[in-house]
């Protein structure tokens, strides 16, 4: 009985070569799609499958025959006959330098295993640009004006985005010392998911940063605490407060966590949840980026409204109390 329903017209296939190997991918695919079709390990950072590519980090660049500069694999659509090279000296150089430039200015210790593997594979050594600068006082970067930086006092330390963690609400923290300015949170908050537009990129150049208007605390902004910015952050700059607290006390341990897939109990939309449980306690809720309904995005209830689960015993106790006011 089940007949597949075509959701889109069939797409023509386009043939390109990647590192000399021919591959056919649907028209409109990106170079990254073609690389992945050939299982070529391509580093990415700002790219996310559920967001519009902004090609800002440039770690996925490849060389195209006939092009003056390298091009970003994540956003550039393939064209018939394109000759793509992913492993030339030029490509490796740019990828390594991007990793080093980021590593020298941003804390990437929570950027994940893939990132660690890539930086090893490309031999990236961020330290050679000098030790990362000490954190600036809170708010200092928010006050910087476009086009007016001051000459660094000590050029042997690498200027960085290091700064204290911003904690201005109960649900999540913003640790901008880890921010690579991938634009993912801005996209998730805005046109790609939530349409809330509580945050945007402010400032310019190295002083560009993610900010609310006039850097007001989140609870004075348009933020609705959907947490979709956290869901897409690749470096742990945005993090649920619970996870942040557990990490700070040293008890966050992903090896002890179980992930259970379920459906959100709140409304009829049917969002799929991945409930992360550590020591019989829910510590985090996510949704898979490839899920039809959520595309990885949730609302405040689905993402944060799980505290009641752990209180089941208290609640049934209180119900019993109500049913039987004695003794």
């Amino acid at each position: 009985m089940s007949v597949p329903v075509p959701l889109a017209p069939p797409r023509r296939l386009v043939e390109v070569t990647v590192d000399g190997r021919p591959v056919r991918v649907p028209e409109g695919s990106t170079i990254l799609d073609a690389c992945r079709a050939l299982a070529i390990d391509t580093p990415t950072l700002c790219y996310a499958p559920n967001l519009t590519p902004v090609n800002a980090c440039r770690v996925c660049v490849v060389e195209i025959t006939g092009a003056r500069t390298l091009v970003p694999a994540c956003s550039r659509p393939v064209e018939a006959g394109m000759e793509i090279a992913t492993d030339t000296e030029r490509v490796r150089h740019s990828r390594r330098l991007v990793m080093e430039l980021l590593g020298s200015s941003v804390d990437l210790s929570l950027a994940g295993e893939d990132w660690e593997r890539w930086t090893r594979a490309y031999g990236a050594d961020p330290e050679r640009f000098g030790a990362r600068m000490d954190p600036l006082p809170a708010g200092e970067r928010d006050r910087r004006r476009a086009g007016h930086h001051h000459e660094p006092e000590d050029p042997t330390v690498a200027e960085s985005v290091a700064q204290p963690v911003t904690i201005d609400n109960e649900l999540y923290v913003r640790d901008y010392a880890r921010c690579v300015l991938c634009y993912r949170c801005v996209e998730a908050c805005g046109e790609d998911a939530q349409h809330t537009f509580a945050i945007a990129v402010a400032g310019r150049g190295f002083d560009a940063r993610i900010s609310t208007e006039f850097a007001v605390p989140l609870d004075e902004s348009a933020c609705v605490y959907c947490g979709n910015c956290i869901g897409v952050c690749p470096t742990g700059a945005l993090m649920a407060k619970r996870e942040h607290d557990l990490r700070r006390e040293g008890s966050w341990d992903e090896s002890r966590q179980r992930i259970t897939t379920t459906i959100c109990p709140y409304c009829g939309v049917g969002c799929e949840l991945e409930v992360h449980v550590q020591d019989d306690e829910i510590v985090k809720v996510t949704s898979p980026a490839d899920h039809d309904i959520t595309r990885g995005h949730l609302c405040i209830k689905g993402r944060f409204g799980f505290a009641y689960v752990g209180r089941r015993d208290e609640r049934s106790a209180s119900r019993r109390d109500r049913a039987d006011p004695a003794p």
Binding site: L102, L181, R204, G205, F206
Partner: peptide, 16 residues
């Protein structure tokens, strides 16, 4: 000063 800050090579490269 004039880098827009969008891409890493220019945003951090000009600082380095």
């Amino acid at each position: 000063d004039e880098s827009c800050g969008q891409c890493v090579p220019c945003r951090v490269g000009t600082v380095r």
